[in-house]
């Protein structure tokens, strides 16, 4: 591969890792409730904005990050407790509209609590690019990739080994059966929103040094994260990573070799084609319809 194409790949991995991290949050909530959480991008924004403003006010970076992640987690729990949880018996589409309302509310609050400007956060290990075979990549991108992989490993452990994780997994397969064996699905819902919000905030903190953050930066990230989660197979954690990286690489390679103006169009067309061949996403479950 030439240095040029390696650079396209490096750029694609940077973007893809970001999408993957956002996509993971979608899959967690989907598993627990069957809902697409349109406020997932706002969790990312809250993480980034809180960390950026706390750091700017003089707080040490690790403390600011911890507070930001904690704050987002609380927001996630509140969303589950006071809104989604109350309408649990409603249609999935109704629940989705609730998350759309939540995303507006959170964006609206963010613009009042903070402001409408773009904020930056320092990188964890400097701006000096790392060189690999003639291509360059920012150290922060490597952080994003590494954390994404670590998060997937931790999620696998959580859902495979812990009691709460297994309960959440059981709920995702069959809610009624889970309730029958004594699983409190309200706790599962709370846990999934809390976990997804924490994950989203971690994503926000990690990507703010690359893409910056503003009160409305969650919208596009949410859209791309949703696309990545679907492409990989909704509900599958490895699928979220594969979907994110695939989408990022598609955009980057399309911009590099075909047309930067139509790179998103190309990415979406390829995605539609993939879905038509694999209607459950790349790593999605192959289930047959039941009556």
């Amino acid at each position: 591969m030439s240095a040029e194409s390696l650079q396209f790949v490096a750029g694609g991995l940077t973007t893809g890792a970001i999408y993957a991290l956002v996509a993971l949050g979608f899959s967690i909530i989907f598993n627990a409730s069957g809902v697409i959480n349109f406020a997932q991008g706002e969790f990312v924004m809250i993480g980034g904005m809180s960390a950026a403003t706390l750091f700017a006010s003089g707080m040490a970076l690790p403390v600011a990050i911890a507070c930001a992640v904690g704050a987002a987690g609380i927001v996630g729990l509140m969303l589950a407790k006071f809104a989604v949880g109350r309408a649990r018996r409603a249609d999935v589409v109704t629940l989705i509209i609730i998350t759309i309302g939540a995303s507006m509310l959170l964006r609206g609050l963010a613009q009042i609590v903070w402001d409408k400007r773009i904020h930056a956060l320092p990188s964890l290990s400097g701006h000096r690019p790392v060189e690999l075979f003639g291509a360059t990549i920012l150290p922060q991108s490597l952080w994003v990739l590494a954390v994404t992989i670590a998060v997937v490993a931790m999620l696998s452990w959580f859902f495979g080994q812990t009691r709460l994780g297994k309960a959440m997994l059981a709920t995702s397969y069959n809610r009624l059966a889970a309730e029958l064996v004594g699983i409190d699905v309200r706790i599962v819902l709370l846990a999934s929103f809390g976990l997804a919000a924490v994950l989203g905030a971690i994503a926000g903190v990690l990507i703010a040094p690359i893409t910056f953050v503003s009160y409305d930066s969650g919208v596009m990230l949410g859209l791309k994260g949703f696309a990545a989660a679907i492409l990989g197979g909704l509900g599958s954690f490895p699928g979220a990573v594969v979907g994110g990286l695939t989408l990022g690489l598609l955009e980057s390679l399309a911009a590099g070799y075909l047309s930067s103006a139509y790179k998103d169009v190309i990415a979406f067309v390829v995605m539609l084609a993939v879905l038509l061949v694999m209607p459950g996403g790349i790593l999605g479950a192959r289930t047959s319809a039941r009556v």
């Binding site: 940077t14 955009e251 930067s260």
Partner: peptide, 16 residues
């Protein structure tokens, strides 16, 4: 070259 409004990485365009 062009990039999207919320793009996070423009290295592909700049490499070209």
């Amino acid at each position: 070259e062009t990039y999207g409004a919320a793009d996070s990485d423009m290295t592909a365009q700049l490499t070209k």
